[in-house]
């Protein structure tokens, strides 16, 4: 993956600042995501990861600075941007009343590139019953269903906001890791946020650390490893031990 050629920026965020009342969530954040990279966004809870992702999806309007995804402002033209993105939300707010089959049928309508065979393959791989209602699925199964609809249209950019929070360790390692590698191997881009440094270390090409709304480190993983013994050590050096994310059991 490290050998993939960087042709252009899929996401370009420049000097983005965001305030929620008296709280400043992002301070002059600038990020550029090269095509074909697996981009890990790490930080403690409340660091600003989800706020940055919501700007990229156009769910938040840039108060100052600019956000461009595929060269387009996601607020001005949400259809052009969102039709090329697969997104798994941290909240995982899939409608509980839908059945898995209905969810697939509904989501399919929005994406011309939806791959029925791939969707069915993912459904079987994730062991999801098509007739099961979303509300009756476990948290892990719901996360898999969310991942299925995020992947089945083979998006150019896959955005995963804390994808591990609903998955057990086996699913995390075998499915999420494998899926991210497959997507990156096909030349598509992945942006995923996590507070699990080990997980990021396993799959990311490039790591950006965010703390209190500021980017404190952004570099290729190999470069970080060359300058620090591990990602964990880099995190302690740049963010501090008090905020060091811990591994999830």
């Amino acid at each position: 993956m490290g050998g993939l050629r960087v042709s252009e920026s899929v996401v370009h965020v420049s000097e983005l600042t965001r305030r929620f009342g008296a709280t400043t969530a992002l301070v002059s954040v600038s990020v550029s995501l090269p095509r074909g990279a697996v981009y890990g966004l790490v930080g403690a809870n409340g660091a600003g990861k989800t706020t940055l992702i919501r700007h990229i999806l156009g769910l938040l309007r840039a108060q100052s600075g600019s956000v461009r995804v595929f060269g387009v402002d996601p607020v001005a033209d949400p259809v052009a941007v969102l039709s090329r993105i697969g997104y798994l939300s941290e909240e995982n707010d899939l409608p509980g009343w839908m059945r898995v089959d209905e969810l697939m049928r509904y989501t399919r309508a929005f994406y011309p590139a939806w791959d029925d065979a791939y969707a069915e393959e993912l459904r079987r791989r994730f062991a999801l019953d098509g007739a099961a209602k979303i509300t009756n699925l476990s948290k892990g199964q719901r996360a898999r269903a969310g991942l299925l609809i995020a992947l089945a249209h083979r998006p150019e950019l896959l955005v995963l906001d804390e994808p591990s929070s609903g998955l057990d360790p086996i699913v995390r390692r075998d499915i999420l890791g494998a899926v991210i590698r497959t997507i990156a191997g096909e030349g598509r881009t992945v942006l995923f946020s996590s507070h699990l440094l080990e997980e990021v270390e396993q799959v990311a090409d490039h790591v950006t650390m965010i703390s209190c709304g500021r980017i404190v480190l952004s570099a290729p993983l190999d470069a970080i490893k060359a300058s620090h013994r591990s990602l964990n050590e880099a995190f302690i050096a740049h963010v501090g031990s008090a905020a060091t994310p811990t591994a999830e059991l």
Binding site: L57, L59, P78, V79, V81, L82, S83, I85, Y87, S89, E91, D93, L94, P95, F110, Y111
Partner: peptide, 16 residues
């Protein structure tokens, strides 16, 4: 949780 906000599932539909 936030009954007034648009849920991300709907907000991220590629529709105007």
């Amino acid at each position: 949780r936030d009954s007034y906000g648009v849920p991300p599932f709907i907000a991220t539909r590629p529709l105007t």
